[in-house]
Write a protein that binds this DNA or RNA. Sequence first.
DNA 1: ACATTTTTGGATCGCACAATCCAGAACAGG
DNA 2: CCTGTTCTGGATTGTGCGATCCAAAAATGT
Lengths: 196, 196
Amino acid sequence: MPRGRPKEFVREEALAAALGTFWEHGYAATGLADLTESMGIGRQSLYDTFGDKRALFMEALAAYCDRQAEMVGEMLSGDDPPGQRLARFLDSWVELLSSELVHGCMVVNSIGDFAASDDVEMLDAVKGHIARIEGLFARVIQQAIDSGEIDVGLSAREVTRTVMAAADGIVTRARIEDVRPKARDVSRSLKRLLGL
Amino acid sequence: MPRGRPKEFVREEALAAALGTFWEHGYAATGLADLTESMGIGRQSLYDTFGDKRALFMEALAAYCDRQAEMVGEMLSGDDPPGQRLARFLDSWVELLSSELVHGCMVVNSIGDFAASDDVEMLDAVKGHIARIEGLFARVIQQAIDSGEIDVGLSAREVTRTVMAAADGIVTRARIEDVRPKARDVSRSLKRLLGL
DNA sequence: ACATTTTTGGATCGCACAATCCAGAACAGG
DNA sequence: CCTGTTCTGGATTGTGCGATCCAAAAATGT
């Protein structure tokens, strides 16, 4: 155990709290007061532990992406054939919009937060996170095409980009309205498109 | 002609310039200096003519929506059957992403700019603009279903929401990368979905 | 000439924000 | 007891912003 007075908070928990606040309000709209309140720590502790606001955000965004990748990876995994796993995902991801994604996808939200900025490092991080999630879908879709489950004259790239675009559109709108009815319609349409 | 010194700028032109700046950088990231520079007028003239920054933005957003509605309306009109008009739109809207929509759709961008704010009036305006554009697609799609051109066991509502979601996703990503290849793939997939 | 209106640009106000500094108290181990 | 670290909270700094005020100049009609 280190010398002096022990920290009164767990780093991961404080980071998770910051994640939630950034997720809900975005980067610029989140003030230091919002962060210290939701994290339950003082300004000094925040700067000592995480650096500054921007560094804290980048770390939170990376944690979000890890969590999202794990969740999507689980939903797309299983013993049944890849096409059925994708169909299952399309059926059940509507539930995510009721709980996890009520404030949209933090990565997609970050596009708007930094698109007009000159923070190339942040933008590269955002693009990387997007590519990572997209890769999970591309893999399953490619498998479903290889196995013949999906056979509609479309490449895996075309299908993946369509699914991702629709998902991005839904989570964008999720920020200002209840999109679950829309998401159900889109999921049904996409399954029809893919013959699932 | 009114009494004193005549205005040295045309209101519509100044508004169009403000529209472009807001469109490119978003609401918060656009400073008064950016506006006066792009509009070519002084602060005083701006406040006298448009009120304040927020009022100027609302007017610019409404003008954007008018223009967008007119453009989409034209692209979806013609003498050929509605299904073909929709297919034509899906083919040619990629060009819009090369010129008009390089910085995304101003309405969709505004979602992120005001989702976390408590400006309900602005949010209602955004929602109204979205509904207006969506109505244009819903009408054509309904016609194509009534005429039997589209017959894939999906309702007009389901198809419309899917097309809009995909489009929203594409224009969101357009802010940080060239999405024309993606848009081509998505358009091809959607046409396949609709049997066009 | 005169009145009216707009333009221009500087100066200023008020506010919110991130970030830093500081001093005192709290808590641990040596 | 002493030392090192953290927590607390107030005070402060610096910056950028929207917005307003002001005064002088410019351009029109009466």
